[in-house]
């Protein structure tokens, strides 16, 4: 760290935190991906996690993923809640035996000194009904604050993970708030500079929070969203069907698992928007979740018939 300029210090700079984590996990052999170019509720939805967790091939990746949770919008007024925030996602498949140690070292890399900070692994099992996925793990505490989720994936898209992947999710804003010692997300120093050159989180995102909260809660065109949901669902089914290997053909690989899965991601986000608009009743809610899960499962099944999913070329 000494070679780096002070404004790159993760304790002073939000982007410094991101860059430090990227560098650390790159050193552990992860491919550093850029955010997936679609709206999604969590980093887990990224095909680099959901699909790559399936099948026998080893895989290590790390990336930042903007997470869109339309319901969590607070018009830029709540210091702790956003409808758009960053997750830092790491996936290691199979999980190495020292994955916990690697995680602890990543905390040290961003300046958390384990001789004065109390790091704890507290039981917290993870389940995503929408993805048909579950795993066992912990929430990772630093001085009583949850700073990461740590999960050993057991099942994704309804399929057993074989081998199991370890997934780490860092809540970047919360972690940065602690490191920077600020009480509001909006007070985070984004670029680590001071004076005129300092850029805060508020300058980057507060307007967006206000506008998207309006959109998500008041103006999003629900008729269009319902239509988009149906379209995405139909498109997903269509691409899955079109990509199916022809019976009797030599090549038995699926040809369009990824484009189909994009439509599953889209359907899930449409559902989240509709949910925020309050137009989905309690009973309907369950059936929408089920519809997305069916798509996710079908995409998982298709992925397992691709090269990435372990089928020989």
């Amino acid at each position: 760290m000494t070679s780096e300029p002070a404004h790159m210090n993760p304790a002073r700079s939000f982007q410094g935190l991101i860059l430090t984590l990227q560098r650390y996990w790159a050193e552990q052999g992860c491919v550093i991906l850029q955010p997936y170019d679609m709206e999604m509720g969590a980093g887990t939805f990224h095909p680099a996690t959901t699909l790559r967790a399936l099948g026998p091939k080893p895989w290590r990746a790390a990336y930042v993923q903007p997470s869109r949770r339309p319901k969590d919008g607070r018009y830029g007024e709540n210091p702790n809640r956003l409808q758009h925030y960053y997750q830092f996602q790491v996936i290691l498949k199979p999980n190495p035996p020292d994955i916990q140690q690697l995680y602890v070292k990543s905390l040290e890399a961003i300046g958390i000194d384990t001789s004065v900070h109390d790091i704890r692994f507290v039981e917290d099992d993870w389940e995503s009904p929408t993805l048909g996925a579950w795993g066992l793990g912990w929430e990772c505490w630093c001085d009583g604050m949850e700073v990461s989720q740590f999960t050993y994936f057991q099942q994704v898209a309804g399929f057993e993970c074989s081998p199991v992947a370890g997934e780490l999710t860092y809540g970047l804003e919360r972690l940065a708030m602690y490191l920077q010692g600020v009480e509001s997300i909006y007070d985070l120093n984004f670029n680590g500079l001071e004076g005129d050159r300092k850029v805060t989180y508020a300058q980057v995102f507060q307007q967006a929070e206000q506008e998207y909260s309006r959109h998500n809660f008041e103006y999003a065109d629900t008729e269009m969203l319902f239509r988009h949901f149906r379209d995405a669902e139909a498109a997903c089914r269509k691409y899955l069907a079109d990509g199916e290997p022809k019976s009797g053909a030599n090549d038995q690989r699926h040809l369009m698992a990824l484009p189909a899965y994009d439509q599953c991601i889209k359907a899930s986000h449409m559902f989240n928007l509709l949910d925020a608009r309050g137009v989905i009743s309690v009973t309907e809610r369950q059936s929408y979740i089920l519809r997305v899960r069916e798509l996710a499962k079908a995409c998982g099944a298709a992925w397992l018939k691709t090269e990435g999913g372990g089928v020989a070329a």
Binding site: P56, P94, N95, L136, Y152, Q154, C161, V164
Partner: peptide, 11 residues
């Protein structure tokens, strides 16, 4: 009550 698989062996 709940158990899991892990690591390379879980293949």
């Amino acid at each position: 009550p709940k158990s899991m698989r892990w690591g390379a062996a879980s293949k």
